[in-house]
């Protein structure tokens, strides 16, 4: 059953000169309940724009988004967006623990329970020992992980993530991918994940939507039929993993196949 429906969504931005840029045009796709779906596409193709529309933070120019059978016309309950600009999204006046506790406070969770949950998530994103630090005392990659832990602690039914691992080093990234998959299974959350990294998308997802250049449309929907649980070594070495990778590369960068 689909939990997220994007139907003919377009968004154009009015520019200072009075002209308008069409960022996305007539995008349609679906995400089923409990699925892990990724969006990949070139920089500037409108991925952030799309997520902002889905999160009810900006109004689309045409089309609509339906979350759990209700049309989005403001931030839907139980849907949280992890922002690409994680550093601007953290609360500078709250410590790491305070930031992660935010969503739990909003939900009115009892303090003891909330603190336990927050500590668990801080550990999961590899930040134990930094609970009392402020965001500006952390590196970019660490800040990004605080933002992820904060969103996960809220336990939304739908989680939209905008390049959440963009500032994290390759090794930590692999760990975070597995941590995210573990939590996704545990919580039964539906995740829509934006990334530039095609292999990351394959490793994580049940399905991948590939977006073209601006104004972008969905140019390809790829089903990922790799078994779960996945494994960074064996899954990535799987023949069908390579096949999917090549298929998507051929679509997004046709020149690659001709080689040097």
């Amino acid at each position: 059953m689909s939990i997220l429906d994007v139907e003919g969504l377009s968004k154009s931005y009015r520019q200072a000169g009075g002209e308008s840029t069409l960022a996305i045009e007539n995008i349609s796709f679906q995400v089923n309940e409990g699925e892990f779906v990724s969006l990949v596409g070139p920089s500037g193709c409108g991925k952030t724009t799309l997520l902002m529309c889905m999160a009810g933070l900006i109004a689309p120019s045409a089309g609509r988004v339906v979350v759990k059978a209700a049309e989005v016309d403001g931030p839907p309950r139980n849907l949280v967006l992890v922002f690409q600009e994680y550093n601007k999204s953290l609360f500078a006046w709250r410590t790491v623990l305070g930031n992660v506790l935010f969503g739990l406070e909003v939900k009115g969770k009892p303090a003891r329970e909330a603190e336990e949950k927050a500590s668990y998530l801080i550990g999961l994103v590899g930040l134990d020992g930094f609970e009392r630090h402020y965001p500006w005392e952390l590196s970019g990659g660490m800040q990004q992980r605080v933002a992820i832990a904060r969103a996960l602690a809220y336990e939304p039914e739908v989680l939209l993530m905008d390049e959440p691992f963009g500032s994290v080093d390759a090794m930590t990234r692999l760990e975070l991918e597995d941590g995210l998959l573990r939590l996704w299974k545990e919580l039964g959350t539906t995740i829509l994940f934006v990334t530039h990294d095609i292999e990351e998308a394959i490793y994580l997802s049940d399905r991948i939507y590939v977006l073209g250049r601006r104004p972008s449309r969905v140019i390809q929907a790829v089903e990922v039929r790799l078994g779960r649980p996945r494994n960074q070594l064996t899954t990535r070495a799987d023949a069908s993993f390579m096949e999917l990778r090549n298929e998507i590369y051929k679509q997004t960068a046709p020149r690659l196949s001709s080689g040097w």
Binding site: A55, L57, G74, R77, N78, V80, L81, V106
Partner: peptide, 17 residues
């Protein structure tokens, strides 16, 4: 920053909160 306001909204805060 707008992102901060968006963060409050995506966590479902009413205007007052």
């Amino acid at each position: 920053d707008r992102v901060l306001i968006h963060t409050a909204r995506t966590f479902g805060l009413s205007q007052g909160r």
